[in-house]
Design a protein around this nucleic acid. Sequence first.
DNA 1: CGGCGCATGTAACGGGTTACATGATTCC
DNA 2: GGAATCATGTAACCCGTTACATGCGCCG
Lengths: 192, 192
Amino acid sequence: MKGLDYVLLAGLWVEPRSGYDLAHWFQRAAHYYWAAHHSSIYPTLAGLEKGGLIIYQLAPSERGPKRKVYSLTEAGKTILQAWVGQPPQPPEIRDEQPVKVLALDLLPLEEAVKHLEAAKGRAQEQSDMYSAMLLQMDEEERDRGERHWLGPRLNLMRGIQIQEGYVRWCNEAITLLQASQNQRSKNAFVGS
Amino acid sequence: MKGLDYVLLAGLWVEPRSGYDLAHWFQRAAHYYWAAHHSSIYPTLAGLEKGGLIIYQLAPSERGPKRKVYSLTEAGKTILQAWVGQPPQPPEIRDEQPVKVLALDLLPLEEAVKHLEAAKGRAQEQSDMYSAMLLQMDEEERDRGERHWLGPRLNLMRGIQIQEGYVRWCNEAITLLQASQNQRSKNAFVGS
DNA sequence: CGGCGCATGTAACGGGTTACATGATTCC
DNA sequence: GGAATCATGTAACCCGTTACATGCGCCG
């Protein structure tokens, strides 16, 4: 069992879903902690089903082919529980943004600032999206029966916190960048 | 040119280093934004050298074989500059911790809290490590001539911010978890 | 009737991880 | 002399991404 297997089990524990739903979940709510494309999701779901950890019910879609809505079996729940009890593997991240920051002094000040502003904009957008999802989740809370909402809620809160932190850091970075540039020109002036 | 190529160029722009140094850098300072093992670093460095983007000088090590200390060529600097000017690819993350949070209600309260405390401890440790590196960087600032320190400094600040945010979130999460548990028992009591 | 969103899949390719492999030097 | 750290590399395997492939149903 690889990482994605457990992630899908956890996703289905929150609420029964189709492969298509899970793919969207990865693109939106889960985007800041796990990435997966539909082409890896479908085969993995098939494997889990063969292993008896999940089952699916065919459900009509309003538009498009029939949906395979998967849910955990008792066996699946047991496996998931055992995995959740273990300490997590250290996270694997590949984020180009901080790498580019390392060489920010290769760009003219103006362009460097523009890039940081862009990064800030993206973070703000994400933050707003998570906030909207949190609001929506609170509104739906009453009529949601079978759903386990605490985990997703905590993760949304974390997503918002991360993005807000990023926005603050972008502002600091812009300030420091401009300050260091001023320092450089002042030295050049004094030195000349 | 793949992602790692540019990351290594950026790493060498900060300061000339050997493959071994870069591997350590990934394990420590760069750990929160990029992962790479030495077995992928060495072949990639060889490729960059063949392409004329970096060159190395053999330097004796105090202990162990000779070190290949790589640095950017003009061509490498140009390529890096062009890459830094482009908007970054969206980050790719695989972090099991938030996935486990999704299914935290599968564990008894006590164990769930224990896991969050452990996560908090790890975050605090990381935060302290980054703080120590930041201090060290400030102390070394005087005698460091050729080094580009602003980028690494900004990234360390960000690392600290992220880990501190994580610690705060863990505390909130523990509180909410215990509150929801109380809620559940109260409902059970009223309902019975 | 074409395009878009829904919905599920397969296959080739690429890249990174795990494991294998080697060797120098110092400390105990 | 064995263990630990420094230092560089290779090869098999796994897994995920990119691209290919198919088909339904609504809206304009």
